[in-house]
Amino acid sequence: MTTQLKDEAPLGRIVVITSGKGGVGKTTSAAAISAGLAQQGYKTVVIDFDVGLRNLDMIMGCERRVVFDFINVIQGDARLKQALIKDKRLDTLFILPTSQTRDKDALTQEGVEAVLNELKEEFDYIICDSPAGIERGAQLAMYFADEAVVVTNPEVSSVRDSDRVLGLLSSKTQRAEKGDSDPVKARVLLTRHDQGRIDRGEMMTVDDVLEILAVPLLGIIPESQAVLRASNVGTPVILDEPSSAQTAYKDAVSRLLGEEIEMRIESERKPGLFQRLFGRSA
């Protein structure tokens, strides 16, 4: 992994990880992508926008180190520098946790903008981990974004919600409202992909999903046991033990950085005894 610590001004690029639907892997993806960018030498901060339901800290494994949070900073109770938690594994990675006690009304557009502007001065990538839904928290997480990663499962309700979120990205964001800048660059990250079920006709294919959503694909993350394992121990998938999900997230990060990498789908496990005995026909 190259660590190109750059002398130039930080990129200050804001990327929202969103989905509409809950439980599709937003926080897992936000943690993995931010760790992946940091691993590549980009100074990265990941912000939890899910006020009242703090969880990014657990996925990042820094839940015991939270003192001040995003809301404290917005309300002027703490300085940004105090609330930022430096990752213990990567010195280019920082976490800005949210409040566990307040509700989403504590987020204000002006407050969020001020914090993001301050972060842009110092960070290459600012990853906004959106809450589920399309209300205030989710809208503010996407409002200032330059790019969006729409996390989608190959499942009807998730695809429908992603479509709705894509609509909001192209209408309810600063870039959309200004009109003079490029629209938010949105891409789909397909998670919980299961080639076996696709082969058996039980799951929509990648093409099915992309045809419906009509936005480019950032990556395909296979259904993987590594995701639960990583969350158990509080390590982003990309920094945990090698797995098909890890490879897929690394590829997605490279594509986010503008590299052209062929889509590949690794299967999670070699066929076990059961599968060898009964073949792949089941």
Partner: peptide, 22 residues
């Protein structure tokens, strides 16, 4: 273990993580 530790703290504090810090 992580959850037990965290939740013990959050419940013990009544209103979650220490709000008195600011």
């Amino acid at each position: 273990d992580r959850l037990q530790l965290l939740l013990a703290h959050e419940r013990g504090q009544g209103s979650g993580t220490p709000d008195y810090l600011p």
